[in-house]
């Protein structure tokens, strides 16, 4: 389904600041996989997502999605098959436009010079009601008035309103308060299950990394250093995962955030 083969990316090549953010990364994702990705800050998790989503082109290697070579496809074109949520809930929606207008753009059906139909608005209303946040009664309000949790839930809905082939979740609940984070995570699980989406999710929470999905990948220094699924993963505890990390990385873990969560 998603075939990442030998991609590398170096930022500022040839300068003193040169940093290899992705170092010969390969990852094969099957249809319907829900992979959680963990790793310390700067391990290359978000860079991997940027490479897949097309925020930049990789220096080498190739990326295939459903057999189609998307290695050099511009970001906006890939967006047709790839949905993406960021840590910052403000990034996914236009604040000065209404909920309805945001959804209309995300849905993207109909010709350029047509307006949003009544039927479409009704569909939006029904889908918004499923979020259980009262947004269905606020469709004409600008998105800027929503809370972070509401905005992220809306972004999730926008990203999946046309079910994408691949959904990238980049710590999308990290900036939310615990209640909102739980709610958005719940909605994410539901959306992924209902649409049978293939999904990659970056998280700093070791617990949810093991609980969610069917496969866990660990990154360090631009490489995938550990990849587990099936029975092995089922038996794995957070403590063991940390052990695995030390073992594979060959050095002590110095990221407090990761240890604590």
């Amino acid at each position: 389904m998603l075939e990442i083969s030998h991609i590398s990316k170096t930022f500022h090549p040839g300068t003193a600041d040169a940093k290899t953010a992705l170092d010969d990364v390969s990852l094969s994702v099957k249809k319907g996989d829900f992979i959680t990705i963990i790793g310390a800050n700067g391990a290359g998790k978000s860079t991997l997502f940027n490479a897949v989503a097309g925020s930049f082109f990789t220096d080498s290697g190739s990326i295939l999605l459903d057999g189609e070579d998307i290695t050099l496809m511009p970001e906006y074109k890939r967006a047709r098959f790839i949905g993406r949520l960021f840590q910052d809930p403000m990034r996914g929606s236009a604040p000065n436009m209404t909920i309805e207008e945001n959804l209309a753009l995300a849905a993207g059906s109909g010709a350029w010079l047509t307006t949003v139909s009544k039927k479409e608005k009704e569909i939006f209303r029904q889908k918004l009601a499923l979020l259980d946040m009262g947004l269905e009664d606020r469709m004409r309000q600008p998105v800027g008035l929503l809370s972070g949790g509401q905005r992220q839930a809306l972004t999730l809905m926008m990203a999946t309103i046309n079910p994408p082939k691949l959904l990238l979740l980049d710590e999308h609940t990290a900036a939310l308060d615990p209640t909102a984070a739980e709610k958005v995570l719940e909605l994410t699980k539901k959306t992924v299950e209902e649409n049978g989406l293939t999904c990659l999710m970056v998280t700093h929470n070791m617990q949810s990394a093991l609980e969610l999905g069917n496969r866990t990948v660990m990154m360090n220094a631009g490489k995938i250093i550990f990849d587990t699924s099936g029975d092995e993963r089922a038996k794995l505890g957070v403590g063991e995962l940390l052990e695995k990390f030390k073992e594979a990385a060959g050095k002590a873990l110095d990221n407090d955030r990761m240890l604590l969560s």
């Binding site: 967006a79 990034r91 753009l105 993207g108 350029w112």
Partner: peptide
């Protein structure tokens, strides 16, 4: 400004990231 094209133009001024993720070229 009510058409999809108009909405996309307004969104480009508001949040170009969002336009790109709606697979529209800002």
């Amino acid at each position: 400004m009510k058409t999809r094209l108009g909405l996309a133009i307004r969104a480009t001024g508001d949040n170009a990231d969002m336009v790109r993720s709606s697979s529209i070229n800002p």
